[in-house]
Each structure stands twice: as structure tokens, then as C-alpha cells.
Design a protein around this nucleic acid. Structure first.
Lengths: 260, 260
DNA sequence: AAACTTAGTTTCACATGTTGGAACTAAAAT
DNA sequence: ATTTTAGTTCCAACATGTGAAACTAAGTTT
């Protein structure tokens, strides 16, 4: 259904856009060129086109390119119309107030985890800095619960794209180890992050599933080993599962419009 | 420099993306078709391509398309790398704490005002619901101050694209009236929204200018006629101007990277 | 249940837009 | 003044996008 293969000029242009975004800072044409497979004039035309379109912005003083503001406008629409994000918002508020720990709402984007929303107990919400962030699927709580409920054909494709980089000593670094973990998650109905991505950071996560059992997204409560234990987090499982069911129900029956 | 003319296949595809986003809710193929100038198969291919690329997401149950999550990821990069938004954040926090009214950071996107960030005195920050929102340039405080400092050739193009719709009795509805207002703003160094966009809503706005006087963005403090008067808001002008200068300075000298 | 309507998808000859080697210009570096 | 590097334009060869027409699937009417 979804191709990683670039289709057509549009796909190539968007791949260039991703490239630029991946740098994480404004870049000069030459820098993009050095990381790109395209010949100079071809890449140049892509960059021009994207710039004309407002998908890239060009700083004439520094002669650098960065992802353009048009994306911010489009993303607002994407967020507001996404099945999950607007519906889940009040539930995140409630959860956050209840548990007093960091709460995440995420979704699979290709083979990565994409964070759609966040509540942090300590400081007030700072969404843009977090929503839109991506992380690995194979070593985060939300990532694994979503994978666990992803059917075979897709799952294989996604697993093939994981880096299996060992962020910590606890990281699962082989497809086999991950598959076993996914089986456990399905059996249990929820999953953990046991310091697999960052030392000292643990989490419990539940999937948000459609009626047909397809994973829409994931919900997690994150804490530190200093403050919580996995056992204590596990006590939240029933409540999280109920919240996930509520969100799934609302997502299936509502549809919110973009408003002030 | 920037074209509204569609260049190539990429431009056309992105125009389709805008179309879909403009609906404000998930749409079926036929709905897009009815608003599009393209013949059925052509549009169909665009929609397919965009869907494959993750720029549109397709809901198989409802058979609807909506802007895709890939945009959220890209927008995160755009926001984090934008010259203004990350730099301005702490200043907005401070301003908001100081004045206790709604504070906006905006930028020009094509001929529209695009809100990049917001602080609301009442409830904690809810950025995604606001950042990315667009508004008219000719009848908002931030819009007018940015236009006021936009040089002739561009300004004409932008003004030609304004609708001059009369949102309220106070709305400036002719290019001439707007030009006169812009002159006043340049002379004064700041501008107002005198209930021109929404009845009862007033604001004071200042431009954020580069060393060369090019407008990077705008900063505004919004209130209601019930709580504030224009005279009282005007007292904030010096402080806002100083903040704008500070932001401009930081924007020119810093460059922040994407971090946690 | 057959006939009709509407929404979505596939096909294919044609032409338009994309490609990239080569050649050019602008600006630094030597 | 000369060389090097970065950015830009040209254009012939060719790959890709185009859209009328034809088709399938689903829903509606008689």
C-alpha cells in the first residue's frame, strides 16, 4: 500500500526536502549536494522548486536553506484533522493531571515513532518543540506496542528498516529479540520501555486500536528509575487501556473541524 | 523571487495538498475533484502520489484523505530551524508573564499572516492548535506592521492578493486606506488592530526587523475592549519594540539546533 | 432482479517536463 | 593576477506526466 520507493518527480523532491530537514540546521547548497545522490543541476532545480513553493526557505544573507514555513501551515491542518491528536487532547490532560508524569501520544510514521502530543508534569506544555519529533520504533514503549499489533506483511517491512542500534545495554538489538518482545506485548496488552532508549528512563505504553485491531497510535507514561519502578508503572495499565479504548471510540465516531 | 505560478509537477502536487488542507476536514476523492481544475485521472495520480509519500493520509474505512503526518515531522524541523520561533520563545514567555494578555509571534507566509507561537494568559500553552494558523494580513495588527516595512515591489504583489473583506465595520477595505495606515505605522514604529478583524478584539503590534530593515516577523499583544483600551496598550510600545530588537539581534547571531 | 447511476480505478498514445554533461559566472583563496 | 571552489544556466536526449476513453465496483431506482 505505502511505498518507500520514490514515485516520480514529486517523490524525489520530497526526499530532498527530508534531506534538508534531517540536517537539523540551515544548510548551504553544497552541503545538501554532498549528501545527495543527484547531480548538481538536478539537485539545484529541486531546491529551487521547493524554495519557490515555500517548502524550503532561503536566507539570502547566510545563503542557507531550511524547511519552510508553508510546512507549519500544512502541519497545523494535518494535526487538526488527524484522527487521533485532537480527540486525544482532553484525555492527555486528564491523564497528566492524574499520574503527574510525562504522557506521550504517538503514531507510526513509516517505520518511525512520531510524537503527536505531550504533557509534562513539570512545565507547561511546549508542544511544537515536541510534537513532530521522531524516535526509533524498536526501542521505545509506544513504538513496540504499535509494532506488536501491526499485521505481518507491514511489520516485516518496518522491522527491516530498524537500525537496531544499541542505545543502552538494555536495547533489543536483533529482530528475533524484538519479535519475542512483541509476542509478550500482545499477550499482556501493554508494553514497557526498560531503559532501552535512554539510561534511567522507563515507560509503560498501551496501543490505541481500531475495532478491527489495527493500531492507530500509542499512549505512554514515562518516568525515571529514580522516581518510579516498572512495577509501580504497571499498576497504571488498566487505566491506560481504558483511556486508549475511549480515545479509539471517540476517534471512530467524532470528527472535529479546525477551529480557533 | 517567489512565484505563485506553479512550477512543474511538484508545484501542482503541492497545490493539491493545499486544496486538501483547505477543506479543514477529511475529504473523499470526489470532493477534491469537484474543487480541482484537473481531470479525474490526473488528480487521482496526484492524490495517490501524495498518499504514498505520507503527505496525505488515507482512511480506508471512511475513504477519506487528510493532510498526512509526515507534514507534522517536517513542520517540527521547520519550526525548530526557523530564524524566529525558537529564538523568540523565551521572550514570549517573559512578555506574557509581564503583560498578562495574549501574545502572538507571526511571520508573513506568501500574502498571509502565519502564527508561529502564542502565549495565552488564561490557559497553558496549546501551541499546535494555534501555531500554523493563518490569518489575513491587511486587517490584523501583526499583518499590517509587517506590510508597513515590506519594500515596494513585494508589497504591491501582496496587496494585490488581499481580499479586503469587511470582517467588521472598522476593517480597512481599500488598498488606499491600507497604504495610508502603513505610512502611519512606519512613522510611529508600531501599529494597532482597532477591532478590524473581530469586534471587541484590539491589539498593538511591532515589527521584528533585520539590520537592513527587512521584516522578519511581528509581535503583538492582544486584548478585548472590555479589558483594555488602545491608549493603555500603546503604553506597551517601547517595551515591545525593545523585545523585537532583542529577538532580531538573537536571530541574527544565534543558530539553535534541534534538541530534546 | 435487471437497468441505471455514480464513484473510483486502469490503460495507453502523445507531448511535455525532467535529466545531467558540459560550459559558464561569481566569489574566495592563493 | 591566477587558481580553486561554489553556484548557475544551457540544451539535446529521453523519461514522465498527461488526460480522453474505457472499465470496474458499489449503490440507487424501477
Amino acid at each position: 500500500m505505502s511505498r518507500d520507493t520514490e514515485d516520480g518527480t514529486v517523490g524525489k523532491a520530497l526526499a530532498v526536502l527530508d534531506q534538508v530537514a534531517a540536517f537539523g540546521h540551515p544548510v548551504r547548497f553544497g552541503e545538501i549536494l554532498s549528501k545527495s545522490a543527484y547531480p548538481k543541476p538536478t539537485l539545484y532545480r529541486f531546491v529551487q522548486t521547493l524554495t519557490n513553493q515555500g517548502m524550503l526557505s532561503y536566507d539570502p544573507d547566510r545563503q542557507t536553506y531550511a524547511p519552510g514555513v508553508r510546512l507549519v501551515r500544512l502541519a497545523h491542518a494535518a494535526w487538526a484533522q488527524s484522527t487521533l491528536a485532537p480527540v486525544a487532547r482532553p484525555y492527555l490532560d486528564a491523564l497528566s493531571a492524574d499520574v503527574g508524569e510525562t504522557v506521550h501520544l504517538a503514531q507510526l510514521d513509516n517505520a518511525q515513532v512520531l510524537y503527536l502530543d505531550k504533557r509534562n508534569a513539570v512545565q507547561p506544555v511546549q508542544m511544537y518543540s515536541q510534537a513532530g519529533k521522531v524516535g526509533p520504533a524498536y526501542c521505545t514503549g509506544v513504538g513496540k506496542v504499535m509494532l506488536a499489533f501491526t499485521p505481518e506483511p507491514q511489520l516485516d517491512r518496518i522491522i527491516a528498516q530498524q537500525s537496531f542500534h544499541a542505545f543502552t545495554p538494555e536495547t533489543l538489538t536483533t529482530p528475533d529479540a524484538l519479535m519475542e518482545e512483541l509476542d509478550n506485548i500482545v499477550a499482556r496488552g501493554y508494553g514497557f520501555d526498560r531503559e532501552e532508549h535512554e539510561p534511567g528512563i522507563i515507560c509503560i505504553a498501551v496501543p490505541i486500536l481500531t475495532e478491527k485491531g489495527r493500531p492507530l497510535g500509542g499512549l505512554s507514561v514515562t518516568s525515571t528509575t529514580a522516581r518510579q519502578s516498572l512495577d509501580k508503572l504497571e499498576k497504571l495499565a488498566p487505566m491506560l487501556q481504558q483511556t486508549a479504548r475511549d480515545i479509539a471510540y471517540d476517534a471512530a465516531h467524532w470528527h472535529i473541524k479546525d477551529e480557533d
